[in-house]
Simulated scan of single mutants.
Amino acid sequence: MSFRVRTSTSSCQASLAPQSAPSEAELLAFVRRTAADAELVAALPLDPEGRTWIRLEGPGGSEAWLIGWPPGAGTGWHDHGGSHGAFAAAAGGLTEQSLAAQLPTEGWKVLELADGVDRERRLTGGDGRAFGPHHVHQVFNTSPTEHAVSVHAYYPPLPMMRRYGRTGQVLRLEQVEWPEEWG
């Protein structure tokens, strides 16, 4: 682990701040490598009723999670509070629906989306994707019978998440979640 020592005339403090922030490509490499760790993936307890997770140590001070998705589980529309990140499927498959548009992060409650902004992709067996700080998406397991498992990493660690409701082309800010709420 790298760290910097900060000194001042009044005190000496050690900071565990990383030398440099991990890039989206570095986060993607991490989640793919971690998704390939069969022993770690098998260690995740799976619940037939809800998502399960284990917090991991990500590269360069990033926040990382191993997440289990029962059949039909999903996130709903959300963003990552200005963090960039990556995720990869470790077992089963996930579908991601995203918006190919950079949305303003502050100062709105309702947006009408333009035609053609919707994107959908399926991730299975080590497939992953990186995304920037303004990414809005929803992720879900469409399988009626099989669990999915994925690895996610974010930098900086998630300061918050905004949750959205969507009806047709209208996106509404519904809730802001803070880290202390995630347990």
Rank of each mutant, 00 (worst) to 15 (best):
R6N: 03
R6P: 00
R6I: 00
R6W: 06
T7H: 05
T7R: 05
S8A: 09
S8N: 05
T9L: 05
S10A: 09
S11H: 11
Q13Y: 04
Q13I: 01
L16Y: 03
L16T: 00
P18R: 01
P18E: 03
P18I: 00
Q19C: 05
Q19F: 00
S20G: 07
S20D: 09
A21E: 11
P22M: 03
P22N: 06
P22E: 06
S23D: 03
E24F: 04
E26L: 00
E26K: 00
E26D: 08
L27F: 09
L28P: 05
L28W: 01
F30S: 01
F30H: 04
V31G: 05
R32A: 01
R33N: 06
T34C: 05
T34A: 00
T34P: 00
A35E: 03
A36M: 09
A36R: 08
D37G: 06
A38I: 03
E39N: 07
L40C: 01
V41Y: 01
L44V: 05
P45G: 05
D47S: 13
G50W: 11
G50R: 15
G50K: 15
R51N: 12
T52R: 14
W53L: 09
W53P: 00
I54N: 00
R55E: 15
L56Q: 05
L56D: 10
E57L: 06
E57G: 07
E57Y: 05
G58T: 05
G60M: 06
G60Q: 11
G61Y: 04
G61P: 09
S62A: 14
S62K: 00
E63F: 00
E63W: 03
A64W: 12
A64Y: 10
A64E: 10
W65K: 02
W65E: 11
L66T: 01
L66N: 04
W69R: 12
P70L: 15
P70W: 13
P71C: 13
T75R: 07
T75M: 10
W77C: 08
W77P: 03
W77L: 10
H78G: 10
D79Q: 12
D79N: 15
G81L: 12
G82C: 10
G82R: 08
S83Y: 01
S83F: 02
S83L: 02
H84V: 02
H84R: 10
G85C: 09
A88M: 08
A88W: 10
A90E: 02
A90C: 08
A90F: 01
A90I: 04
G92V: 07
G93P: 08
T95G: 14
E96C: 09
E96W: 07
S98I: 02
S98M: 08
L99N: 13
A100M: 10
A101K: 08
A101W: 06
Q102D: 14
L103P: 08
L103A: 06
P104Y: 03
P104C: 10
P104K: 09
T105H: 13
T105F: 07
E106L: 04
G107W: 12
W108N: 15
W108L: 14
K109T: 14
E112Y: 02
E112N: 13
E112C: 06
E112T: 15
E112H: 11
A114D: 15
A114N: 09
D115V: 01
D118C: 06
D118V: 08
D118L: 15
R119E: 15
R119V: 04
E120A: 14
E120V: 14
E120C: 15
R121D: 14
R122C: 13
R122Q: 15
G125W: 09
G126M: 05
D127W: 04
D127R: 07
